[in-house]
């Protein structure tokens, strides 16, 4: 199979949808990682998968069901003031249980649930691309406005609180954006691929980027590269897209680990940040007795 397959009219919509999501999801992932809430991707993905399945059972569009379920969860989290991964852990458990129960009690529900987990990117249609573009537009409008606020509330949490600024509103706005992003991605590429695009590029960028600006840029670039490689390999080898994307991104994570020298250094004074060897500082105690 040739590279031109990527622009085959049959695959143009899935390709365009995936590229847009591969730009946006890693940006959301970077902010979630900054807040130490990377599990949000799995929590929102499971909830939105359950919402999508419920919508299908009720003969409604899956995309709308997924976005609504994830949005309501984000609002509930914001209203309760919950923070950290524990709330997303419970969200994930609830969504997972609902997905299995709905699947077990409806005709063909089990197959649809399986499809939502694995991902069926090649069937993405115009509504998926429209949702992805809307998400990108919302991200382009909200993230520049939110970014410094979110950085400040994370790193200098007392500054805004001491001035009575609407910190919870900022966080809930971002939660809604993240929930919508994961829900749109889950509907078009499945839970596994959505989680992979939120988690892996940001995780990598956090370790190698020299600044926050570069972290955001690198996250998106890695997301798009990983997506394009996985899309082509999955088509070439006729494999499900979600697991292939995970394999590609895990390979990138492993490569970055190998190149940054995860193995212990022979020199205990090796500078972890620069990678350059430096002699240990000399410490002399003038009062020490001669050996």
């Amino acid at each position: 199979m040739e590279l031109t397959t990527l622009v085959d009219p049959l695959f143009r919509l899935p390709l365009a949808t995936g590229v847009v999501l591969a730009v946006v999801l890693p940006l959301l992932g970077a902010v979630l990682m900054l807040r130490d809430e990377w599990l949000a991707s799995l929590g929102y993905a499971q909830i939105s998968a359950a919402g999508a399945l419920l919508a299908l059972v009720a003969a409604l569009p899956a995309l709308i069901g997924g976005v609504l379920a994830a949005g309501v969860s984000a609002l509930a989290k914001g209203a309760s003031g919950a923070a950290g991964n524990a709330s997303y852990g419970f969200m994930m458990l609830g969504g997972w249980a609902a997905l299995l129960l709905i699947g077990a009690n409806t005709s063909a529900g089990d197959q649809v649930a399986q499809a939502l987990i694995q991902g069926q990117l090649y069937f993405a249609g115009p509504e998926d691309l429209a949702a992805a573009l809307l998400l990108a537009l919302a991200g382009a409008m909200l993230l520049p406005w939110l970014m410094n606020k979110l950085l400040r509330t994370r790193l200098l949490p007392h500054h805004d609180a001491a001035n009575g600024r609407p910190v919870r509103r900022w966080h809930t706005t971002f939660d809604l954006l993240a929930a919508a992003g994961v829900a749109v991605a889950t509907a078009s590429m499945g839970v596994m691929a959505a989680l992979a695009l939120v988690l892996a590029p940001a995780w990598l960028a956090f370790r190698v980027a020299p600044s926050w600006r570069w972290t955001l840029l690198l996250s998106s670039v890695l997301g798009v590269l990983g997506f394009l490689i996985a899309f082509w390999v999955a088509l070439l080898l006729d494999q499900p897209f979600g697991p292939v994307l995970v394999a590609v991104l895990l390979a990138a994570v492993s490569l970055s680990g190998a190149s940054s020298g995860v193995a212990p250094s022979r020199h205990p004074w090796r500078n972890a940040a620069s990678g350059r060897s430096q002699p240990p500082p000399t410490i002399e105690d003038p009062g020490a007795p001669d050996a």
Partner: peptide
């Protein structure tokens, strides 16, 4: 009002430069 508590928030890894922290503040 600006408040600096006893221990600044230190996270690792944290790819945010000092300048970016100051701009955020």
């Amino acid at each position: 009002v600006a408040m600096q508590p006893q221990a600044p928030v230190r996270l690792s890894p944290l790819p945010v430069t000092g300048r970016e922290l100051l701009r955020a503040a």
